[in-house]
Amino acid sequence: MAMDYEFVDVTTPGGLTLRAAVTGQGPLVVLVHGFPESWYSWRHQIGPIAAAGFRVAALQVRGYGDSAKPHDVAAYAITELAGDVAALIDALEPSGKAILIGHDWGAVIVQTTALVHPEKVRAIASLSVPAFMHSPRKPSDIWAEIYADRFYYMRYFQDEGVAEAEFEPDLARFVRVFFLSLSAQGSMTDNGLFRPKGTTRLLDGLPDPGTNLPAWLSQEDVDYYAAAFRKSGMRGPLNRYRCVDRDWDLMAPYAGRMIDQPSLFIAGLQEPTRYMVPGVDRFDNPVPRFTDCRGVHLLDGAGHWVQQEKPQEVTRLLVDFLKGI
Rank of each mutant, 00 (worst) to 15 (best):
G210P: 11
G210T: 02
T211S: 15
T211M: 10
N212R: 14
P214C: 01
A215Y: 04
W216M: 04
W216L: 07
W216I: 05
L217R: 10
L217A: 02
L217I: 03
L217W: 02
S218I: 10
S218R: 11
E220P: 02
V222I: 13
D223W: 05
Y224G: 00
Y224R: 14
Y225I: 05
A228R: 14
A228W: 00
A228P: 07
F229C: 10
F229R: 13
R230Y: 00
R230K: 15
K231P: 01
S232Y: 11
G233S: 08
R235H: 15
G236I: 03
G236E: 09
G236L: 04
G236K: 01
N239T: 02
N239Q: 12
Y241M: 07
Y241A: 05
C243T: 15
V244C: 07
V244G: 06
D245G: 05
D247H: 14
D247G: 05
W248G: 02
W248T: 05
D249G: 09
L250T: 03
L250Q: 15
L250R: 13
M251D: 03
M251Q: 09
A252I: 00
A252F: 00
A252R: 15
A252M: 10
P253E: 11
P253H: 04
Y254H: 15
Y254S: 12
A255V: 00
A255R: 14
G256R: 08
G256F: 04
R257T: 14
I259K: 11
I259N: 10
D260K: 13
D260T: 15
Q261Y: 06
S263L: 05
S263F: 04
L264D: 10
F265T: 09
F265K: 11
A267P: 05
G268V: 00
G268Y: 04
G268A: 05
L269F: 06
L269G: 08
L269W: 07
Q270N: 10
P272E: 04
T273L: 15
R274V: 06
V277P: 01
P278N: 08
G279H: 12
G279S: 08
V280H: 02
D284H: 13
N285P: 01
N285K: 10
P286C: 09
V287Q: 02
P288E: 05
P288C: 01
R289Y: 03
R289P: 02
R289N: 03
F290A: 12
F290E: 04
T291W: 13
